[in-house]
Amino acid sequence: MTVTTPTMPAQRTNRIALALRLLLGLVTVALALAPVWAGRADLRLLMEVLSFLALAQMWNLLAGYSGLISIGQQAFVGLGGYLFFALAMFAGVPLLAALPLAALLTALVALPTGWIAFRLQGAYFAIGTWVIAEVFRLSAAQIGALGGGSGISLPVDLARSLAESRGAREVVMYYIAFALGLVSVLLVWMLLRSRWGLALTAIRDSEPAAEAVGVATRKVKFLIYVLTAGVTGLVGGFIFLQKLRITPEAAFSINDWTAFVIFIVVIGGIGTIEGPIIGVIVFFALREVAADWGTWYLIGMGAIAIAVMLIDKRGIWGAVKARYGLSILPVGRVLDAAPPAKPD
């Protein structure tokens, strides 16, 4: 059993939180101005970082707050990507409208898949979501119009409709990525500050207790499942707009869109808004250093995820928060200022 009394004087905690908030603000401003200072390669990296931040925020909302451990989120990344390509190429929808439309359709598809997956509990729910993602992958490979197993490319003139020059296109795309990252954080933050937040925090801390005080846990969880599917689909659409090519293997990759995302959330701190931000920094720092190690890099990531679970399953930010009572993005709940100790 861990005791979570803040060990620092409240004043000092407040000062550190303020400094971190300031830092976060500065980073946000710097990111907003990235096209001014960053080179092309850096901009690309930042787009990837921001996309993963959005995916991680969504997985965290799903697993960390709603207790729905999905290992099939690649279903919605891939679906968003394919729907975006289909809308843009066959329905003639302008690219910038095709993205939100693809997200909306992804959320709609999540209604029946959620209805099916919610018949399974716990770890079996996790595997069920994976089966659904596999169904999507295998089906995509059967659709000839979308290139079947070998995939399809976005025609150059369509890409040009975004902006004439390559540089300008990348700036537009960067701002989409920036918006995705920012909106994902704000969405979770605002959701937790709303009346939904109380329900979600209650579900995170104890589902039976939440039910006992009248939270319709199943309904809340289902809506969160559909919401995260939609946003995940949006990110998926963007990822493949940036790649300009989509294949079933890349679109529905469990490693890229779920395993890495879980790693980010878990190492950063599941069930906190700050966790995915820290996790995404750790993940990309590790990748820059160790990606050349190939299989050993992936083995190391698996080992780190296991180690986090054995040492402190709250992850980096979860441990910091419990020890010092820090919160960069306070959700305005008393519960959050002094989180209840959870028996291990």
Binding site: G122, I262, T295, I299, G302, I306, V308, K313
Partner: peptide
């Protein structure tokens, strides 16, 4: 045995981590 319990996350993540480790070790 160290991750059995009411909280679902540790067993799911530990065995998912094991899965990635085993696949890559076999690949190596």
């Amino acid at each position: 045995n160290r991750v059995l319990g009411a909280d679902l996350l540790p067993p799911v993540l530990v065995t998912f981590g094991l899965s990635i480790i085993i696949q890559n070790a076999l690949l190596e």
